[in-house]
Design a protein around this nucleic acid. Structure first.
Length: 470
RNA sequence: GGCCCCUUCGUCUAGCGGUUAGGAUCCAUGGUUUUCAUCCAUGUUACAGGAGUUCGAGUCUCCUAGGGGUCACCA
């Protein structure tokens, strides 16, 4: 059985890099009918925040990734870690180090000035004397002093790191609170993880964790280190790049299925395929197809995917999603028509919402530029005549083709080009020069509203246009 | 700086010793559309550089350059 996990620390929001590794882990577990576990890394009591934790859980919920069982909180497992610390101490695989922070700083500065890698020098590794007074010790683990630590990374291949690069790192701070690399290794082992998929930035933690695995006799899982996601300039993602919080994408009008599809293709591929439903991702995902190089985050592609998912989403479903964007169209008698007429014109739900609002609400103002272009010349009279024709029209007016017939008839009887009525009518109805088809708009709002909007436009034109121009 | 990793169109990527180096996005052009958008078609653009190995190298090896990661009593 495959067991994977996502292990965020509740110190900030969930960002897209984290979401992607979570996605990969989730897909891999689901594909193998294994388990995907959630573990909250909250051993740094001073940096945790409940809001951050809540935001992470909310983001998971929004994208629809479910974890198995209950989330595990490291802060509630200190007694377990304590037990292993004591065990290592007893077995002589760990020791108390009485070096003060000041002494450590001095050592580091010395090493840095010599251009060496900063590392603990092991001065208390075999200490038998009387401990200095007044110093609360930390616990350090005995790391191998020679040879190499070698592991096979599922993405990058065999990684060899010299043991001299790994010092006797602290596993318990003064006060006894255990540190990250120690608890990660213990929890990963205790949770029976088979595959650890995580960010590239953890690559150097792996040898440290292997030291713990070996000291405790745990079985080492498979590691997959996924390269980072950079911004469009190829630099590290930062707050300045916007939308670092996954939930920000919801605010911007992105569908979770588009975001996930975008992320799954960032660093992973299945031949030339671009569009993946969740089920397809689960079916096709293979960690061996994860790219070894880092990738740049590019909004164009996400936007294209989002537009794709909006266009292809059933209208009832779309109506439900739109509720989050202050659009209440569920149960509207022209729902199908309304969404068919607008959903190809919005790349995000926010844009789609504004398209819908344009149709559902009569324009309260007309852009001067549009007025100048669309309401010039005979426009006022033409609109008036068209409104008249609508009023006197005797055939039914419900569907777009039925409205089309009116326009058709109007243009022919007046012997004018479509342009003479098209743009003035559009601006009258929407206040905008672009948008859905006129036939559709009129069919959605109905004949009374159509006439009312035309009359308001005529009134407006009359108030600003010199009579000589009409 | 030490160590580790990475390098194919602007971007995401396919490629797994022999291809006219493919797809997607973006951009441009044309077509469809009464506008816009959608859709369709066409087009421009890439193997970081240099040595090897080989009959043959984007694919293997080495070097150089560039980029990234990491060096905590943070996670």
């Amino acid at each position: 059985m495959i067991t994977t996990r996502f292990a965020p620390s509740p110190t900030g929001y969930l960002h897209i890099g984290g979401l992607r590794t979570a996605l990969f882990s989730w897909l891999w577990a689901r594909k193998n009918r294994g388990e995907f576990l959630l573990r909250i890394e909250d051993t740094d009591l001073s940096r945790n925040s409940d809001e951050a934790l809540e935001a992470i859980l909310k983001a998971f919920d929004w994208v629809g990734m479910s974890y198995d069982g209950d989330a595990i909180y490291q802060s509630k497992r200190f007694d377990i870690y304590k037990k292993y610390i004591d065990q290592l101490l007893e077995e002589g695989k760990a020791y108390k180090c009485y070096m003060s922070k000041d002494e450590l700083t001095v050592l580091r500065e010395e090493q840095m000035s010599k251009g060496e890698r900063t590392r603990y020098d092991g001065r208390y590794r075999d200490f038998n004397g009387t401990p200095p007074e007044g110093v609360e010790p930390v616990i350090r683990i005995k790391a191998p002093q020679e040879g190499n630590i070698i592991f096979n990374d599922g993405v990058k291949g065999e990684i060899t790191i010299a043991s001299t690069e790994v010092d006797d790192f602290v596993i318990a701070r003064t006060g006894g609170v255990p540190t990250y690399n120690f608890v990660v290794a213990i929890d990963d082992a205790l949770m029976n993880l088979t595959d650890v998929i995580r960010g590239d930035d953890h690559l150097y933690n792996t040898p440290k964790q292997i030291v713990v695995y070996e000291a405790l006799g745990f079985e080492i899982p498979n590691f997959y280190h996924v390269a980072m996601i950079n911004n469009e300039q190829g630099k590290k993602l930062s707050k300045r790049d916007g939308a670092t919080d996954v939930m920000e994408y919801k605010t911007l009008g992105y569908l979770p299925e588009a975001l996930l599809n975008f992320l799954v293709r960032l660093g992973w591929s299945h031949g030339d395929q671009e569009i993946f439903s969740i089920d397809e991702m689960i079916e096709l995902f293979e960690p061996k197809n994860i790219n070894r190089s880092s990738s740049n985050y590019n909004l164009d592609k996400l936007l294209w995917l989002n537009a794709h998912y909006i266009k292809n989403m059933p209208n009832e479903q779309l109506a439900i999603r739109l509720k989050e964007y202050s659009i209440e169209v569920e149960g509207h008698d022209k729902l199908e028509l309304l969404l068919d007429a607008t959903k190809e014109r919005g790349k995000t739900l926010v844009e789609l919402a504004s398209q819908i609002n344009l149709i559902m609400n009569a324009p309260t103002e007309y852009n001067p530029k549009n007025v100048k272009k669309a309401f010039k010349g005979e426009a006022k009279n033409i609109l008036a005549d068209f409104a008249m024709m609508l009023k006197e029209w005797e055939r039914p007016l419900h569907t777009p083709p039925e409205y089309h017939a009116v326009i058709d008839n109007f243009v022919k009887s007046k012997e004018i080009g479509f342009g003479k009525i098209g743009m003035p009518l559009r601006v009258s109805l929407l206040g905008s020069m672009t948008g859905s088809g006129l036939d559709e708009i009129m069919a959605i709002i109905g004949v009374e509203e159509t006439i009312s909007r035309i009359e308001r436009a005529i009134e407006f034109v009359g108030s600003v246009t010199p009579t000589t121009n009409i």
